[in-house]
Design a protein around this nucleic acid. Sequence first.
DNA 1: AAGATACGTCAATATGGCTGTCCCATCTTC
DNA 2: GAAGATGGGACAGCCATATTGACGTATCTT
Lengths: 162, 162
Amino acid sequence: MTPAASPLFLREHEVRRGVELLFFGYTRLTRSIDEGLAEHGLGRAHHRALYFIARQPDLTISELLKMLAITKQSLGRVLTDLGERGLVETRTGAIDRRQKLLRLTEEGKAFEAQLFDALRSSLSAAYAAAGQESVTGFWRVLEGLIPPDDRAMVAALQKDIL
Amino acid sequence: MTPAASPLFLREHEVRRGVELLFFGYTRLTRSIDEGLAEHGLGRAHHRALYFIARQPDLTISELLKMLAITKQSLGRVLTDLGERGLVETRTGAIDRRQKLLRLTEEGKAFEAQLFDALRSSLSAAYAAAGQESVTGFWRVLEGLIPPDDRAMVAALQKDIL
DNA sequence: AAGATACGTCAATATGGCTGTCCCATCTTC
DNA sequence: GAAGATGGGACAGCCATATTGACGTATCTT
């Protein structure tokens, strides 16, 4: 019996295309906010923290660490910078007083919204050009790239949608 | 007259979802090759150069610079490392002797193929889970994220497909 | 011959990660 | 109430990857 042609072999072309589009798409999208960040003397690492705090107010440090998948020290520096600039504030957890709950200040919210505008204009233009069915496919493939252990965390972000 | 509801407003949810999936998908995919790179004492920057040289043999330095969108100095270090390890070699351009044409050595090809295996297994699993129509949508949205000026460059990668 | 281009290189600097270790406050469990 | 686990902070030192700006050399174009 001849086995079915290996899908791994057949898909090299498609896989390379995906790798390349992901690289260019992701890097160009992230570059779109560099200017806004530079106005405050911040970098992309700061934006990532800002973004997830905006998304899940009262997030704890350890939850944010899991999202970003960096070390406590790296995150510490970033949060210090954001705190010093008055963009992020913490309060002690009501249930567990060891925890620090992270929130954006009003200024932080305004800044995050400003950065988000750049992301929105790039992404919504791409969505519009591609069409809604394409957007669904875009999401599905990306979901498949996320290791199963991380999926619940990502899915949780979608729950508290406006 | 009531204007149509602003699509920018309506799409915040979708845009946030895209931002998040892109972040997690991209970072998790790139992490999948770190182990292989570490075996040779190399980092992700080296892989990016290796990848595009594999993809377009006889690429010039300036073409590669445009792809990666980094500075000459940054790329110089990466290429020196790759040359020292016998993964990349250069020859003088036949038409324009100022140019250096970049190629992978046999060892370089084998190493790139090994790294590509990790990318292939992640991406092709995601493709398979999502289905072919989703893959098309995935590509379309990502294409829309690439600034028009860069699109020809990315499209050129698809021409010399196996 | 003059100027532009392709590439290399020097020096200095910034950012954002890492490891390992130790500490304190607080919660949980026995 | 004591022991241990957990959440968070902090020190020191390191590495990878990027930046800017200036300058040099070979080669191509006009």
